[in-house]
Design a protein around this nucleic acid. Structure first.
Lengths: 185, 185
DNA sequence: CAAAAACGGTACCGATCGGTGCCGTTTTGC
DNA sequence: GCAAAACGGCACCGATCGGTACCGTTTTTG
């Protein structure tokens, strides 16, 4: 557990928001679980929305770093992103993608939280394109979007079925996609 | 606009829930937009949760009927489900899949709303399997799950990008999937 | 060791949440 | 045409929402 009140708030708010949703978690719950005084929260964050944005930005950085490291450790092939996802799905506190959830909960596309979530997904697509380019896959920009669609589909399906299997199914789809694209240029 | 208070409540609640989320819409908003008295709501539905379940069950029936009719009209081929999705994505009030949104908003898998949403997805998978079986696609049970994953991936991506393009991309993925499965038995 | 910053606890605020009770009116069914 | 059901409007309830102000204490900093 972090020592700062600020870091404790960020950690506990992220956990609660991810597990139950942003709107479903009140300020009081966060304060109680963090052991932080009410005033301390508003010293660090002007409003709940600002706390939400800070939580999402931190999670964005951490999640993308995790993915890159995990793909690297699994051999660096683009298909490894699905193996990384499978690891996530296996955790019993898996509750889907925090950023998809945020875009759905914060419906207004112009809201700060929604913007951060949308930006996260764009960054992931950029990473995928760079990964596919490095693997000499033709049309990496288009294939990156296909991969992202498969990843989000796997995430939503895993949330629904409560099993890591969708990661493998998405991986198989991506394999046939790469196999179909390569041999006929 | 329906004449019954009950039907007006269902119609307006569905519209508001879909557009802004279930938690984000209070009882008062629904009453005002429906022109219904407060007591009338609680005469028909014991609580907000019961209203939510009734709205979802009605939408489930309507959505699946719509999909079946649309696929039929588009030739009856399994790939037509993606053409049907493309039509939905083009509407400017498109806000993703109400049932995915519900499973995310009502995080508890045992909550009534979550159960209805999960059941809807199972029914869609069943329909896909029957559709693929009718088209003599090998391993229809497995391919139905692949199709469902592609559909959900397209829906989430369309919500994110705010364009119907993901439907075409998912269709292309499904095409290569069928092409890869058929010629090598 | 002292000044200053960070902190936890509590009382309080207006607004809104879902839900109940009662009233007079309108619509429906026989 | 009359009884009964359905209805809309309003007042009200306790609980909780996000947010503010002030308190005395602890921790950091120089």
């Amino acid at each position: 557990m972090p020592v700062n009140a600020r870091d404790r708030l960020l950690a506990n708010a992220e956990e609660l928001f991810y597990a139950e949703g942003i709107r479903a978690v009140g300020i009081e719950r966060i304060l109680a679980q963090s052991g932080v005084g009410r005033a301390s929260l508003y010293r660090h964050f002007p409003s709940k929305d600002d706390l939400v944005v800070a939580v999402l930005e931190a999670r964005d950085r951490r999640w993308r770093n995790w993915l890159a490291e995990r793909v690297e450790a699994l051999g660096g092939h683009p298909l490894a992103v699905f193996d990384a996802l499978a690891e996530r799905f296996a955790h019993n506190d898996f509750r889907g993608c925090a950023f998809i959830n945020t875009m759905i909960e914060s419906a207004d596309p112009d809201s700060p939280a929604h913007r951060v979530a949308a930006a996260h997904k764009e960054h992931v697509v950029d990473y995928l394109e760079q990964l596919l380019t490095g693997a000499d896959v033709p049309e990496p920009a288009l294939q990156a979007r296909q991969f992202a669609l498969l990843m989000d589909g796997a995430i939503v399906t895993a949330l629904r079925e409560r099993t890591p299997a969708p990661a493998d199914r998405a991986r198989r789809l991506a394999e046939t996609l790469l196999a179909a694209g390569s041999p006929a240029p």
